[in-house]
Design a protein around this nucleic acid. Sequence first.
RNA 1: GGGCCUGUAGCUCAGUUGGUCAGAGCGCCACGUUUACACCGUGGAUGUCGGGGGUUCGAGUCCCUCCGGGCCCA
Length: 891
Amino acid sequence: MVREVPDRVSTDGLEAKFDERWAAEGTFAFDRSATREQVYSIDTPPPTVSGSLHVGHVFSYTHTDVVARFQRMRGKEVFYPMGWDDNGLPTERRVQNYFGVRCDPSLPYDPDFTPPHQGTEGKKVKPADQVPISRRNFIELCEELTADDERQFEELWRRLGLSVDWAQTYQTIDSTSRAASQRAFLRNLSRGEAYQAEAPGLWDVTFQTAVAQAELEAREYPGHYHRVAFHGADGSPVHIETTRPELIPSVVALIAHPDDERYQHLFGTTVTSPLFGVEVPVLAHHAAAMDKGAGIAMCCTFGDLTDVQWWRELQLPTRSVIGRDGRLTRDTPAWLADGPGAALYAEALAGRTAFSARTAVVDALRESGDLDGEPKPTQRMTNFYEKGDKPLEIVTSRQWYIRNGGRAWEQRDLKAELLGRGKELDFHPDFMRVRYDNWVNGLNGDWLISRQRFFGVAVPVWYGLDENGEVDYERLITPSEAELPVDPTSQAPAGYTEDQRGTPNGFVGDNDVMDTWATSSLSPLIVSGWERDADLFDRVYPMDLRPQGQDIIRTWLFSSVVRSHLECDVLPWKNAAISGWILDPDRKKMSKSKGNVVTPMDLLVEHGSDAVRYWAAAARLGTDAAFEVGQMKIGRRLAIKVLNASKFALTFGVDPETGAGEIVLDPAAVTVDLDRAMLAGLADVVDQATAALEAYDHTRALEITESYFWAFCDDYLELVKDRAYGAGADADQVSAETVSARTALAIALDTMLRLLAPFIPFATEEVWSWWRTGSVHRAPWPTAEPLRSAAQGVDPLGLTAAGHALAALRKLKSAAKVSMKTPILSGTVAVPAALLPGVRSALEDVRGAGRATGTLDLVEATDGQGDPDVQGGIVVVSHELGEPPAKKPRS
RNA sequence: GGGCCUGUAGCUCAGUUGGUCAGAGCGCCACGUUUACACCGUGGAUGUCGGGGGUUCGAGUCCCUCCGGGCCCA
């Protein structure tokens, strides 16, 4: 039933119109009565709300939405919740500045707290002026501030047309997520998968926090090689080269490669350190680089990760001198106390930063004659916290870990199990699997989850204090699952009262929060209602799809697999869809620091959401894409073309007053070969597009559909125009041929709207609203079979042939530089044998579209006549053009 | 240093298992206001498939090597 086709069509305003309608009609509401087999569930990345959305988000989230809309049309009930990631440093910083506060977890919660500021117009509040507040108060302010960000994010997503069920949002910091995260931790703890350990770990001095392997970033860092002499038993020098001479007080061994001939005679002997006279062994280890420096290195506690490896594998003593504050310990270490360097340490090194200690040590070495030559500048790879700007120190501290196969465990071979999970998971594209394998194989430690931050999920444990008020880390106090979420810094454990905090025989709470990934790794469990909504859980978990970026395969994807494997002994999802990067025109990754970022909302407003989606969907998964406004303009043209062609095809012969001549989608009414050929071709398109989408290749589906749509407009629509008008006939007595054209047009349109709906949801929904009921996004995905049945076995080549014949007629007019309206009085056309039947059967349509008014003879082309690449080899051998019609005056 | 991806028309990209594979769109040039569409239509031109070797009857396609981009891990 064609209702109201507008006189002028436009893509403007469709986003707001349909966002409202979809919300009102619950088009994307999840029906939780569906069974697991009927559900397609998606574990969408929760964007970081304190950051800003950029073009890359629009890009990758569009890919996911195309999948969601396709699966929904295939009859799946799509579970597609959206989360907001509020955790982390950016939020903490903003809260500090916005409200003028800072978090001090040792303070009690103040339920009546009012912040000193409400917005400081971007000005920073000096730390000294920040009011210290409890963690719980701090978190409340974080939540307040992020609420506004979430509104803006949702607005953008809705405008982009994400078919999310907006009733299903969650936050990574809300009480549900906190409870789930703490519950999972407690279960890890009870199964021995979580443990605390005093261990060397990477430490950021600026941020005062431990840093996990996944947060590391290796960067070039300038330093100097210092050639320093150690001394053998006979006093002979052994030169090493080090960039960190200030660590000489913490040296525990000299180490060279076992095959290094230069040092064979030293293995098994000892040498003494310069300045401090500490006797250390000379050992062999394969990790020593023969070609670096002198080939023999000093091993300290700890200069770098190789030192940690040696310390562990060679069972070396611990002689740590650098503390969490980045300074050398204030007390002279025991192993130096009786040596020649005790005074040097006490006077020049104790309490100094690593930097000033280095100067002091170098001066002393120079004086003692143990420095050989002057320091030589060098660049070397140094570990940084990804958000930090000072090299990380390695300090020993007590932290919580979750097992992830990075460290041997006597109970299970987790590494092998997790590698197996990687093989089970379907990566799109498949080669992304290698990144997972490489990462898991390269892990050399368990997952450090303690973070010395505030706005995050608290480690849900307390520690008992002994009668002297000293913390006893073995006396763990844990909450019951029913109590979760808990904040150990502001709540007392069951059986204790708050006034026992920090008192002898009392308790203290763990001050740390868990790594952000420790919560977001649980997103599949959190959204699925794990241990909260068993009914939902059974219907959606394990999930179908995890879309994400390739950069976080090692973090988010891997940690999610770890948690699900440990908790449920299953993969969290069947498929992982990995989107690529957006590159700017110089083929550089777009990033804020380069100033080449475009605001997504402006982009959507300027080009229209369908246009931007088209650009995104035209890029394959896993492939980097250029930011191309040109592609968006093509998308916009496609959307407008869909509107215009639909308007045209739907209004033939329909009397707007009476509704007479109404199109009926009855395949039996399609009786003309050309119409059948068009439907036959469309059937192939449906098959190919469906197969492509099933294989997570949305780009191919779009390309196939789009190119057929354009051929449909350029050739088929032009060919059947005259016939479809059915000129002269009354609405109730049109010919069967006219009905055939009108019906075929409508069937094709109906099919193509569905095929295009996941890509350009707004324009297709607009057309759908003109003549169909409900939403195209809930309409069934088309199948080829009814089209093929309507085609009655007619070869799709017929449309191609007729299209080429029409193009050949157009070409002669184009060459003659006359209007396409110019009549062809007579002509002879040579057609290759293969195309002849198609052209012959569509001859009347070809003549009409080409304005061939007189005789038009068809002859079979001879060998070598015509170029197959030009109009399929069809050539007009002779012709006579009539007078071009008189030009109408410009209005 | 290791791994993965990538290099095809001025631009953005397709090119399944080696055999109409030299392609599309944009841009460009020429023409045309045709009542679905000027946010248009029609027609046309455009390439040592990064370089060099090899396998093969046959190589953008497979192998080797070199060069250039991007990312990850050391």
